[in-house]
């Protein structure tokens, strides 16, 4: 069992497909991530293009969330976590002097795997980001941002009568949409979404996918998903992770119709994972 695991791991030699793009928004090269002694990401290089949705798929525990969290340096908040490699946003080093984490995270927003609304009202949840970054100069502008974000996240109609109810009083799926609204309220340039639809019903999922498609006009989006259909529907490129390595990356069309790597093929045809 362990041996075959090791064999599979050893047999992944580099990444199949072109990891670079012509107009990268973010560029990551040779990224390694360690949790203490344990390595979770092995030498992954990947570009994230402007105006594209890139889907990250792979079996549970393969390091998708960990990789995603490198993109806005969220891993820095875990004391045991160490990240090495070169990472840049618009050509600027993520760890350089011009990109403080506060600024970086305002530009690269994140929706977490588990909904985590603040212990504040629905309104304040969404208004929090714009408030701390000073995005609205008056109450009317702030209202506009909040309502607009809630509408885009497909939540407004359900909560418009109780904007001052606690965010935690919403259902799991509603909370997740609240977190999406909260993230887009800051108008980041890149949005990282870690399984944003795992707690949503098909209708809400469709709304979010619509939103993702719309956001793509202006932003770059990286989305982790366990749903092949979703990856196929929303993304232009797909990256397949396995055991902490990036096995294959390519256009979604290509990955889902004619994958080059055996592991990718096994995964998308449902032979494991």
């Amino acid at each position: 069992m362990n041996d075959s695991h090791q064999d599979v791991f050893d047999n992944i030699k580099g990444t199949v497909g072109d990891v670079t793009v012509d107009n990268p928004k973010m560029r990551l090269s040779n990224v390694d991530v360690f949790y203490g002694e344990k390595q979770a990401i092995f030498d992954v290089s990947l570009d994230i293009a402007n105006n594209e949705v890139i889907a990250m798929i792979g079996p549970s525990g393969c390091g998708k969330s960990t990789f995603l969290r490198c993109l806005n340096r969220m891993n820095d908040t875990i004391p045991t976590c160490k990240v090495t490699g070169e990472m840049s946003l618009d050509g600027e080093d993520l760890y350089g002097p011009n990109l403080d984490t506060v600024l970086l995270r305002a530009r690269v927003g994140m929706v977490f795997q588990k909904p985590n609304p603040f212990a504040k009202s629905i309104y304040d949840n969404v208004a929090y980001g714009p408030r701390i970054h000073g995005l609205a100069s008056n109450r009317a502008e702030l209202d506009e941002i909040v309502v607009g974000s809630l509408q885009k996240a497909g939540l407004y109609d359900e909560v418009k009568d109780r904007l001052d109810a606690p965010g935690t009083s919403l259902s799991g799926g509603q909370q997740q949409r609240l977190c999406i609204a909260r993230t887009i309220a800051v108008s980041p340039e890149v949005i990282l979404m870690d399984e944003p639809c795992s707690a949503l019903d098909p209708i809400a999922t469709a709304k979010i996918e619509e939103l993702i498609d719309e956001l793509r006009q202006n932003y770059a989006i990286a989305i982790v998903t366990h749903s092949m259909q979703q990856a196929a529907r929303v993304s232009q490129r797909t990256a397949y992770f396995h055991l902490g390595k990036l096995v294959e990356v390519g256009s979604t069309n290509h990955i889902f119709t004619n994958p080059s790597h055996e592991l990718t093929e096994n995964y998308i045809t449902g032979r494991f994972g």
Partner: peptide, 20 residues
């Protein structure tokens, strides 16, 4: 997760502490 949420939105460590 509350701290992560705050940091993910670009709140500084101190803002996370005071606000959340």
């Amino acid at each position: 997760s509350i701290r992560e949420a705050g940091r993910g939105l670009g709140a500084s460590d101190q803002q996370v502490v005071w606000h959340h």
